[in-house]
């Protein structure tokens, strides 16, 4: 692992200024992706900027309409938070199988989405919740809908000097749904396909990971399901439409064909769950 400079600013402003000032500088948060990438020499930064000294990023703030999870809240802290468990069960389920317990004690949801892996575990629940990514920007804070946050493999909608400060999720009246992860091994594995299928305030929302360059919503399938009763036929047709909305590849974890089958299956089992519970 090459050496680099390391900064621990106390404020977002300082952190952002460092990012702008220093060449080849990156944010490090939980570090579970960054440290492995450093070890494997997939990144060779001149400087890393640790944002964990910024106190406000460690909070989970519950408001009447929403919950905001700070960027430095670890996955385990989030998954054990009462309000999060109460309102965002699909997210908690997804996080429960993200890496190992040891990883979840370091890793954060903000880091997970900023890493922008096509199979990010927390991405599909956030997509069906229509979460908002909160961003500190030198030009003033802004919010990015999660559906517009992912731009490609390891590419996100942040400008230079911008820092994700947290994720805000609306509290819905009723959410029914499931997160599903297909993997070679149940524990501590990467998804070959992951999905969230939910009825959010009566509207069906479906998201997939690991079947395209970015985690994505299946809008056509959602559109098809609008105002329809979930009969076996409707479910079957929806699952076929979902198949056309993704573009998986063959890789060492699974074939394109298997991934397409699991996309279909996710829709079938997800919708059946919504219907039967």
């Amino acid at each position: 692992m090459k050496n680099f400079d390391y900064y621990k600013p106390d404020t977002l402003k300082e952190a952002s200024e460092l990012l702008l000032k220093l060449d080849k500088s990156y944010i490090i948060n939980g570090g579970t992706d960054v440290v492995v990438r450093l070890r494997n020499e997939l990144m060779e930064p001149d400087a890393l900027i640790n944002i964990k000294e910024i106190k406000s990023l460690h909070e989970i703030i519950e408001e009447e309409e929403s919950i905001t999870v700070g960027a430095c809240v670890t996955m385990n802290e989030m998954a054990h938070h009462k309000a999060v468990i109460h309102d965002f069960g699909i997210l908690v389920d997804a996080v429960h199988y993200a890496g190992s317990g040891q990883v979840r004690n370091l890793a954060t949801m903000a880091g997970n989405i900023c890493n922008a892996s096509p199979l990010a575990d927390s991405a599909t629940p956030l997509l069906v919740y229509d979460a908002k990514v909160l961003v500190y920007s030198p030009n003033g804070d802004r919010e990015i809908p999660i559906t517009e946050f992912f731009k490609g493999v390891r590419k996100i909608a942040l400008e230079k000097g911008e820092i994700v400060t947290g994720v805000r999720i609306n509290k819905y009246k009723s959410v029914k749904g499931v997160f599903r992860k297909f993997s070679r091994r149940k524990e501590v594995d990467l998804s070959t396909v992951c999905s969230s299928v939910a009825s959010v305030d009566g509207e069906i929302k479906i998201a997939f990971g690991s079947v395209a360059p970015i985690p994505l919503r299946a809008y056509k399938t959602e559109e098809f399901l609008k105002d329809k009763e979930l009969t076996d036929e409707v479910i079957k047709e929806a699952s076929k439409i979902a198949r056309t909305e993704v573009s998986p590849i063959d890789d060492i974890r699974a074939s394109k064909e298997y991934r397409l089958d699991m996309v279909e299956l996710s829709v079938v089992r997800g919708l059946e769950h919504i219907r039967d519970n």
Binding site: Y6, K8, I28, G31, T32, V35, V36, R39, N40, N50, N76, G99, S100, G101, Q102, V103, N105, L106, V188
Partner: peptide, 24 residues
């Protein structure tokens, strides 16, 4: 790479992979 857990230690009481945490 944080996959095997042989390096597990407790930090503030929580288990972590010490290979994935920078000492600083």
């Amino acid at each position: 790479m944080g996959e095997c857990g042989a390096c597990t230690v407790l930090v503030n009481g929580q288990p972590i992979n010490s290979c994935m945490m920078l000492a600083v």
